[in-house]
């Protein structure tokens, strides 16, 4: 028996909107720790890892570990039927091949339940080791989204370089080139508007902008985004989900032949 009651139902709606274009089908894993997902895109270039910790739910009952295969497009269709202020409860019985999403309006005058068919998904769970990164950049998520969108109108790839001067996003395409440098900026009053660059050593990596743009669909989840770079690892683009956990996107770099 599984019953997860999320008062801020809009968080789940936003999570779905941020992953449904990257991943088609995925297993949602439910354990005492929380509600989580790990999935790769169909070409195995990007990976998404989501964690919504059990403490973040108003009510969290998960009698035994359960993995529920869902088509994310179908799940998104159902969650779109929930109001932004609705409380969402996810329910499933042991051994059932369906999951139920219950939506309650804040005033309790409207209660809806949507039952969705589950599916068997063969997916490999990858071990993601703890790592030291050469550089970690924290910046406003809207700024990062703007940069990715702007650069993708010029080129297909972005070179992200971190030096002591700042973080540089560069692209080139048929019509020309573009470079955007963001410097560390901690003087602003609001911490979520600051740009913080922690650099152990300079790093420069090339990534497909198509994926970066897809990751920025998570922008509504957090004011800040953290970009962790290492020359030996996929980049990690992380959006913290207030009080609950995170959504992390991993993207393998492009390497010169």
């Amino acid at each position: 028996m599984l019953e997860l009651r999320l008062v801020q139902g809009s968080l789940l709606k936003k999570v779905l909107e941020s992953v449904k274009d990257l991943v088609t089908d995925a297993n949602f894993d439910c354990s005492a720790t929380g509600f989580s997902l790990q999935a790769m895109d169909s070409s195995h270039v990007a990976l998404v890892a989501l964690l919504l910790r059990s403490e973040g739910f108003e009510h969290y009952r998960c009698d035994r570990n359960l993995s529920m295969g869902m088509n994310l497009n179908n799940m998104s269709k159902m969650l779109k039927c929930a109001g932004n202020d609705d409380i969402i409860t996810i329910k499933a019985d042991d051994g059932s091949d369906t999951v139920t999403f219950m939506f309650e309006s804040p005033t309790q005058d409207k209660i809806a339940d949507f039952e969705m068919k589950l599916m068997d998904i063969d997916s490999e769970h990858l071990g993601i080791p703890e790592a030291e990164y050469h550089a970690i950049v924290r910046m406003p998520s809207a700024e990062f989204a703007r940069i990715c969108k702007d650069l993708s109108s010029i080129g297909d790839t972005v070179v992200i370089s971190v030096t002591k001067e700042g973080v540089k996003f560069s692209t080139r395409g048929d019509i020309g080139t573009a470079n955007i440098v963001c410097r560390q900026n901690t003087s602003v009053d609001k911490p979520e508007e600051s740009t913080i660059i922690e650099m152990n050593e300079p790093v420069s990596l090339t990534f497909a902008l198509r994926y970066m743009n897809s990751f920025t669909k998570a922008t509504p989840l957090a004011n800040s985004v953290t970009i962790s770079l290492s020359s030996e690892l996929p980049v990690v683009v992380e959006y913290k989900i207030a009080e609950m956990g995170y959504i992390r996107f991993y993207l393998a770099p492009k390497i010169e032949d």
Partner: peptide, 14 residues
């Protein structure tokens, strides 16, 4: 020419 790497060449099942 830049070659796209795959996630599975960095992380292994486990």
């Amino acid at each position: 020419v830049n070659q796209q790497r795959q996630i599975t060449s960095f992380f292994t099942p486990g």
